[in-house]
Design a binder for these strands. Structure first.
Ligand SMILES: NC(=O)c1ccc[n+]([C@@H]2O[C@H](COP(=O)([O-])OP(=O)(O)OC[C@H]3O[C@@H](n4cnc5c(N)ncnc54)[C@H](O)[C@@H]3O)[C@@H](O)[C@H]2O)c1
Ligand SMILES: NC(=O)c1ccc[n+]([C@@H]2O[C@H](COP(=O)([O-])OP(=O)(O)OC[C@H]3O[C@@H](n4cnc5c(N)ncnc54)[C@H](O)[C@@H]3O)[C@@H](O)[C@H]2O)c1
Lengths: 230, 230
DNA sequence: TACCTTTCGTGAAGTCGTTCACAACGAAAG
DNA sequence: CTTTCGTTGTGAACGACTTCACGAAAGGTA
């Protein structure tokens, strides 16, 4: 990337860039923090304590303070953290500088659920296009999102800033879908199928395996229940 | 528990009990191992190497060997592990000694997807009953599972060996649903709503937060992609 | 102003899971 | 029978994240 241009002065350490290395788990927590912070702000709250954020993710106050220290956000003793500023700081880190969106492949039961959910809760990451092979789905608009034929995938993604793909097709089709998404420029995949996708090293894959999660719950329901998880 | 009865001799160390303390992550891997082992056995394979199992979960061969060592399953050099025996050993640990099942609460988009999925893939953990408040859903049988009214929850769970509950209702209703499930004897919850459920310490809760997962993917799609993950 | 309480910031210590490294072993080939 | 190759079992080293612990600072209160 070219990068440096625009309007930064010479010596000062800038403040926008994210030169920080953020652990995987911390990203999850930051995302959860932000979501609840927004609710709280909507309710009129303005300051938040570390133990409140900790309760959110099943963590300790110390962990929250450590997280916020890591992202360079500082509160003040006895007043806690300023909510809107913290939301902004987290967004600065998590959100892309330029608009980016998601493509959903596979508009079956699960795909429909996801479309419906994200159309309502409208996060920072809109689903810009959906794809399927079933003729009866192609061309329809579900929850505000157009469903295209798989043959149009490359063309559509060529016109949209899509960097993330959701794989919700039958397991046999998953690898092929992943390959095409990556070929079309996608750099991250949320994979719901019970297969490990083979992808180039620069592509990030997150597996959500509901069957495994359910077995895990069943197991710990029986044996010792270590309160928290995920 | 009464426990000891039936037919074990006096001194020998038994072999069925599961006195082992298993880390959370390992349970996930064991579940994934077993699923793929079954596929392989169905294809006629009989022996498996640690590196093959490792590839499944994005882990190293050493980790697999460590896992199997922990659960006390032993292979042999140059022949690897015996597949069916390993499946059996994992099942011995993961599955309940007595039949147990799952209750699904909230037959919306997501609930339907889950019902459909588990009715097909028929895991060791059947969904025995579904519940909802919407009149048009009550009494229907979807994917082989009867949908009951919420008012019937306690009664139905009184007659079924349900130890796990899936919470797929709107977020406002989640805590109330969790309370009732627990009251009715459920000991583990799979929670899809973006709230931290308050539960007694002996109940295990697993949160599946798709929105957070998606944000995580978006983040790592942009920054360094640490190939694997959970 | 002086004091007391609560919360933050952070170096240090602790915990837990993963990976390394190597000896032992089985099988197959020479 | 001996050699060679590949794989398992495992103690030990490693590394990463979490928690502890304590000093400092901000507000409230008398
Ligand atoms: N539903 C769940 O709760 C659940 C849970 C865990 C995993 N999964 C996995 O998620 C995936 C989807 O689940 P589902 O319940 O929505 O299944 P589904 O059968 O309802 O939907 C699959 C959709 O993908 C489409 N499709 C098929 N082949 C395609 C292709 N080559 N390209 C594009 N689209 C294609 C189909 O037309 C269909 O609309 C499956 O792999 C399933 O294993 C689902
Ligand atoms: N669909 C997704 O992809 C997705 C993703 C992340 C999280 N979630 C969460 O999962 C939950 C369900 O999502 P959904 O898309 O299925 O929503 P949905 O609105 O389609 O379904 C909710 C269902 O719950 C039923 N319900 C409402 N109140 C109830 C109550 N008190 N008791 C029992 N049933 C009740 C409704 O009748 C409906 O059938 C929501 O909390 C949502 O935030 C969904």
């Amino acid at each position: 990337m070219t990068g440096s241009a625009t309007s930064s002065s010479a010596v000062e350490p800038v403040r926008t860039a994210a030169p920080i290395e953020i652990p995987v788990r911390m990203v999850e927590r930051l995302s959860a923090y932000r979501r609840q912070l927004r609710r709280w702000v909507a309710e009129g709250r303005t300051r938040i304590y570390s133990h409140e954020l900790g309760a959110l993710v099943g963590g300790t106050p110390a962990q929250v303070r450590r997280d916020l220290m890591t992202i360079g956000y500082t509160g003040s003793p006895a007043r806690g953290y300023e909510a809107t500023g913290l939301i902004e700081r987290i967004s600065q880190l998590l959100d892309a500088p330029t608009r980016q969106g998601v493509a959903l492949v596979g508009v079956g039961y699960l795909g429909r659920a996801i479309l419906n959910y994200f159309s309502k809760t409208h996060p920072d990451l809109p689903i810009l296009a959906a794809f399927d092979v079933a003729p009866e789905k192609i061309g329809r608009v579900l929850d505000g999102c157009r469903c295209y034929a798989m043959t149009e995938l490359e063309a559509v993604l060529g016109t949209q800033p899509v960097t993330v793909g959701i794989v919700a097709v039958p397991v046999e089709a998953a690898q092929g879908v992943a390959d095409r998404l990556i070929q079309a420029g996608v750099r991250g995949l949320l994979n719901f199928t019970p297969t490990r996708l083979r992808v180039p090293p620069e592509v990030y894959v997150e597996d959500v395996d509901i069957a495994v999660s359910l077995e895990k719950v069943a197991f710990f329901a029986r044996h010792g229940a270590g309160s928290d998880e995920e």
